[in-house]
């Protein structure tokens, strides 16, 4: 449904997005994950046809967004980041305008607006001027806007930003529901969101795609590699002890957190090492060397950890 090929976008000397390539298949719900300022919004704006890429290409349902822009845009429903709306219009008026703009046939417009109102749960404010709505409602009106033309593809830029926890749950439920009949690409910097609604995630940091895969793949990738052990003792000596443990490729002390002298040692395991056994051996070696082992981090498997790791590596490279 979406094919992005080596997208690059620079603003003068600032490169916002660098060589980003990915594809989203029909029927998938994909999370576009990254810290603030990583290039999520820029990438989505390129996909939606609002910005032109400096180089690279994108096709939406087979249509090039630069050369067959209208055809591409007619096939996607886009919800911009801050949910910009006309405050002077009533919700129903606004959606009727958007339906007309998106070429919904005149006689189907009323039904389309009614359906979008219902799907986004904003029927109760249909006759209210948008300027009087709360942030949560405005966000859902923008979502209704993305839905009104019933396009096969939805691109949602931070659809839950600014909502309260109950509303977030509602919107996620809605997205899961929509995912049964639509292809969805949604951006977020909130990890549980991806775990809650997405089949697959793309991770972007500093304008580059740093990881891509199903949630299970991303977690598995993390599991075989690292562990963290909190010890009390001389960091440099214990690093050396750990490096001698079979299966350990490297060990390094993280910056000490001032919690009564606990040093966190980060353990990189060899690709062929068996993680659980290696951790056991490492702890035994540390104890034998006279260190006080205070904590052994569970082999980190949360997406949070993957994310932190991937985006931190990028940062230190730059």
């Amino acid at each position: 449904m979406i094919e992005a090929h080596e997208l690059t976008k620079d603003y003068g000397s600032v490169v916002a997005v660098r060589d980003v390539s990915f594809s989203v298949g029909a029927g998938e719900v994909v999370g576009f994950l990254g810290p603030n300022g990583a290039g999520k919004t820029t990438t989505l704006r390129i996909l939606a046809g609002f910005l032109g890429a400096t180089s690279g290409s994108v096709t939406i349902a087979g249509f090039d967004v630069a050369r067959q822009s209208l055809a591409a845009r007619a096939r996607l429903g886009y919800m911009p980041e801050a949910a910009p709306l006309y405050p002077e219009l009533r919700v129903r008026e606004y959606l009727a305008f958007r339906a007309a703009l998106k070429r919904v046939a005149r006689r189907e417009r009323k039904a389309a607006v009614g359906r979008a109102l219902e799907q986004a749960a904003v029927t109760d404010v249909a006759e209210t001027p948008i300027g009087q709505l709360s942030k949560g409602y405005r966000q859902r009106v923008a979502l209704a806007d993305a839905l009104v033309a019933n396009t096969p593809l939805l691109i949602l830029d931070e659809p839950t930003a600014g909502l309260d926890p109950n509303q977030i749950i509602e919107v996620r439920k809605l997205i899961r529901e929509l995912g049964k009949s639509h292809t969805i690409l949604l951006s977020t910097h909130i990890l549980p969101e991806v775990e809650a609604v997405c089949d697959r995630a793309l991770v972007i940091a500093r304008g580059r795609l740093v990881a891509e895969g199903t949630l299970a793949e991303l977690k598995a990738r993390q599991k075989s590699r690292q562990s963290v052990i909190g010890v009390h003792g001389d960091a440099a000596r214990l690093e050396a002890v750990l490096r001698d443990v079979p299966g350990v490729r490297n060990a390094r002390a993280r910056a000490a957190r001032d919690e009564g002298g606990t040093v966190e040692l980060e353990l990189d395991m060899a690709d062929d090492a068996e993680p659980d056994r290696t951790v056991e051996r490492a702890v035994a070696a540390l104890v034998a060397a006279g260190a006080g082992v205070r904590s052994v981090g569970p082999v980190r498997a949360s997406l949070e950890a993957v994310f932190a790791d991937l985006t931190r590596d990028e940062a230190s490279e730059a």
Partner: peptide, 14 residues
């Protein structure tokens, strides 16, 4: 200023 231009120009209009 309000950002509505983004919604407007991402609709299939010239």
């Amino acid at each position: 200023r309000s950002g509505t231009i983004e919604a407007l120009l991402t609709a299939p209009v010239t």
